[in-house]
């Protein structure tokens, strides 16, 4: 009933953008949006292109290459860990974590995406790229 084209707009049928993102991670894919109109990439996803306003941008697989845009080390009694804003090679920025020694994370550092499972949920994290790798 809810997908009846007489009642609902078919451009927005199917899973919502957040569901598509999470389903991608569960399959080992970083699914970001690319607007068919203006070509802008975006993540996290949305029902429309934030750059030009066009509805229902489609999904593409991200390359997994990224760099650190900014980073902080959170220091708690039970240990320190990194929280970063990473900039994907395609342009969008996301909050994430760079794995390994948090003290070694530097702004501009090249990264490679990896999906890990935490508490039964797939989570996008990043590893420092091998030398000569992602840039």
């Amino acid at each position: 009933m809810t997908d009846d084209p007489q009642i609902t707009d078919p451009r927005f049928d199917g899973p919502g953008p957040d569901a598509t993102w999470h389903a991608g991670l569960a399959r080992g894919i970083v699914a970001i949006q690319r607007c068919g109109g203006c070509g802008a990439h975006q993540a996290p996803p949305s029902l429309l292109c934030r750059a030009c306003g066009a509805p229902a941008p489609g999904f593409v697989d991200a390359s997994g290459k990224a760099t650190v845009y900014s980073a902080t080390t959170i220091r708690r009694r039970d240990g320190a860990y990194n929280v970063s804003i990473v900039e994907l090679a395609e342009g969008p920025r996301l909050m994430s974590r760079v794995e390994g020694d948090p003290e070694a994370v530097r702004i501009g550092m090249a990264l490679t995406a990896r999906i890990v499972e935490e508490d039964g949920i797939p989570v996008l994290v990043f590893d420092p790229a091998p030398a000569g790798g992602a840039a």
Binding site: Y69, S70, T72, I74, S84, M95, I107
Partner: peptide
Amino acid sequence: QPYELPYRPLYPISSYALAAARHMH
């Protein structure tokens, strides 16, 4: 904020720390 939650940022200080780190850079 489901796109932040898995990374356990301290709210709100880590967001401001990220801005400060970028400003320093």
